[in-house]
Amino acid sequence: MKNTKVILACIIVGLFGILPLGLNVYQQHVMIVCLFYVMMSASWNLLAGYTGQVSFAHAAFAGIGAYTSGILAVKAGLSPWLGIPLGVLFAAVIGFGVGLLCLKMGGIYLSLTTLGVSEIFHIIINNEYEITRGTMGLQVPGLLVEYSKTGYFYIMLVTAIVSLLVIYWMIHSNIGLNFRAVQNDEKAAASLGVDVIRIRVLAFTVSSALAGLAGGVYGHYLLLITPEIPSLDQQFLVLSMTIIGGMGSFIGPIIGAFTLEILSEYIRGYGEYHVLVFGLIALSMARFAPNGVVGLVQAGWAKRSTS
């Protein structure tokens, strides 16, 4: 069972490795965006789906990663290869702080506080126009000397695989077990020796760092960092992808990210309706199938095996 999974994963990664050969420039771009959303959704899912901390600041953390690296590159001439790790570090530090801030809060209070954090970040970007270039966006250097979609595709692919491996390792280790225990019943978990504070802050820190990584690489791919990256609309996309794919499962956000991003590119041909269509799909999924595509498939399997 374990071996088949590993082989399957290798085949998929291998296919992705040769994928750019068969794609045109536009399709490569779509794939890069897909991988960005895979990282975002999977890391949000680690926090929301596995520890029950529904954060609305995840896009903001991507923004922290992107702006840190972008500003360092523009103002100090630092290479993005150094700037992105620093952005990840900074996102992790802020994530650690927000995690601590939210410790005493549960459920709705935490969500609303993260919403406030995200809004504060937005206001700062818009106000510190001279540093961030506000809504105009910050023009940043790329990661490659010679711009190449294929090159970026591989960079994004490697980053996404590393992120997913970190997440996979976490949820299948003792840490993941503790995550789920805390999500199920915090008080019971504490009474059984789970260090709830450590677990919650750890989830916040790692998830924020991964969002910072995704945002940093994405920003240096787009070459323009705008307040779009840390916007609530972005947060909505990440949340929808996770819910449609299946919150609280490893594979769900990956499926959700690919399906919705490709779908949205397809709809885009008919005008700017993709957010509305997304919303309606996400709304009906959340209402009628809260466990997403993965939940539906699992239920289907279970039905099949009993009948």
Binding site: N174, L177, N178, R180, A181, Q183, N184, D185, A188, A189, L192, G193, V194, D195
Partner: peptide
Amino acid sequence: FAEMTCLENVLVPLVN
């Protein structure tokens, strides 16, 4: 831990 199996339930204290 409602959404976890019995074995996972007892595993939580064991790993902590």
